[in-house]
């Protein structure tokens, strides 16, 4: 099962490497990791999407909790959360197809952020599944490059 785990970590060098190393040495499969600053400049938030059964997820949470620079671990499974991913998609624009692509971008509430004679770059954010569906739809036109951030998430309502 897919779980979204949020880890509040000290904003120090080496923490990301530590956690990446932990996942690989323990054989955990991560779908994505997103890291960024938080409201507190000394803290970062890592949002980790990981797949596995309950026993694996329990180990993931506990092993993360053991890392001294990890301050708090939250598994969003079963919680009311907002999840978003951002993607930049560079898609080819074959002759006569540009309008069709722009139509799709509008339906998905994306934004065309760059156009060249042969391709365009689209910015799209949304739940992971929506981003994935959009990328799939553009596939037939010719995907040049895709950059996705991985999921970030927050629980609804008051913090703590």
């Amino acid at each position: 099962m897919r779980h979204v785990i949020s880890a509040l970590v000290e904003n120090k060098p080496g923490v990301l490497a530590h956690i990446a190393g932990l996942f690989s040495s323990r054989g955990f499969n991560i779908d994505s990791v997103a890291v960024g600053r938080t409201e507190n400049p000394s803290l970062s938030r890592m949002t980790i999407v990981v797949a596995g059964d309950d026993a694996i997820l329990e180990q993931v949470r506990k092993q993360l909790g053991k890392v001294i620079d990890v301050i708090k671990v939250t598994d969003y499974q079963g919680r009311d959360t907002i999840q978003r991913e951002l993607a930049l998609v560079k898609v080819a624009t074959p002759p006569g197809k540009r309008q069709e692509i722009i139509g799709l971008v509008e339906i998905f509430q994306g934004k065309v952020v760059d156009i060249t004679p042969g391709d365009m770059v689209v910015e799209l954010s949304g739940p992971e599944a929506k981003v994935a569906a959009f990328v799939d739809l553009l596939q037939p036109f010719g995907l040049r490059e895709v950059a996705r951030t991985g999921v970030v998430a927050l629980a609804r309502g008051e913090a703590k």
């Binding site: 080496g14 932990l22 001294i68």
Partner: peptide, 14 residues
């Protein structure tokens, strides 16, 4: 050293 010893320590510092 911190890279090498990360998986074999409880914690490390530079």
């Amino acid at each position: 050293v911190t890279g090498i010893t990360r998986p074999i320590t409880k914690h490390n510092y530079l």
